[in-house]
Simulated assay, not measured.
Amino acid sequence: MEYIENDLLKIGVATHGAELSSIFDKRRNREMLWQADPAFWNRHAPVLFPIVGNVNKGIFKYRGKEYPMSSHGFARDMDFELLAKTDNSIIFVLKSDEETKKKYPFDFELIITHVLDGDTIKVQWEVKNPSENEPLYYSIGGHPAFNCPIYDNEKRTDYKVKFSRNSLKYSLIIQETREVDFENPKTLELNDGYLDIDAHLFDKDALIFDDYQVDEISLCTPDGKPYITMNCKGFPSFGLWSKEKVEARYVCLEPWIGRCDNKGFDGELPEKYCEQHLEPKKSRKTEYTIKIS
């Protein structure tokens, strides 16, 4: 684990998965990130690459070949190399090798940077295509889980989610196949932007918001005050998720570029929903932020 800190926060990032694993708020003297209790969910904030969610039937197709791919890809389960560390940043890198190319036939470099700036954590991804002549196709997403509630005498159902608009459309995942039921969107009606976290909100898994609907979102204490605010402007999809068990004391705010396949999708990787494309020798940077209020 690598740590950096300032007067307000101390954060820890693990070599394994380059995963943000601790956000300690010095003002509250409390941990704000979920601490991976395996009774509910044994991760903190995995980076989802080169796939977000599941591919239909557990395989993707590329140039006529089939490749097995596990949920959310493999980067979260690999050890990264520490590229650099400063007083306010930690930078890790993962590069393709012969093993990754057996299941994902592309050259890539994934650089993950965490920057501590006052009360805000900047999460930066840079995907590079080092190939001389082959394109790179990928999806990438965040999956940070935040403590909810943050005090012992409270319940998750006491808390609220605050959106930057008053009505959104969302889709659900078909549990048997892990496909997105995109043909049957539902409307999420909000009260001045607030959504109560009721006992049944996550009964059917994640709520998936497409079409750039979520650009800022907050987790709020029972009085409606934000304590976590994520800015993810420019991300095409977003997932809101926790275990359906009301005893699970966390909520995940998940900015995605790409997601699970649509119901019935049987095409090749470049045709996948919101699949990203990089030409040889090109790169792309993306950033979202986490503010602790």
Rank of each mutant, 00 (worst) to 15 (best):
S131E: 07
E132M: 09
E134D: 08
I140R: 07
G142C: 07
H143F: 02
A145W: 07
N147P: 11
I150V: 15
I150T: 15
I150K: 01
Y151R: 15
D152E: 14
N153S: 15
E154R: 15
K155E: 11
R156Q: 03
R156E: 03
D158V: 15
K160N: 09
K162E: 07
R165A: 04
N166R: 12
S167L: 04
S167T: 11
K169P: 06
K169H: 09
Y170F: 15
L172R: 14
I174W: 10
Q175T: 13
Q175A: 12
Q175R: 12
E176I: 10
R178S: 03
D181I: 08
E183A: 13
N184V: 05
D192Y: 08
D196I: 10
I197M: 08
H200Y: 11
L201T: 10
D203W: 04
K204V: 06
I208Y: 00
D210V: 04
D210S: 10
Y212I: 11
Q213D: 03
T221S: 08
T221H: 09
P222N: 13
D223C: 13
D223K: 15
K225G: 07
I228M: 14
I228D: 03
I228T: 07
M230S: 09
N231S: 05
K233E: 07
G234C: 12
P236H: 14
P236M: 11
K243N: 09
K243E: 05
E244C: 13
V251W: 00
V251Q: 08
C252F: 06
L253E: 04
E254L: 09
P255K: 05
D261L: 00
D261A: 09
N262I: 01
N262E: 02
N262V: 02
K263N: 02
F265D: 00
D266A: 13
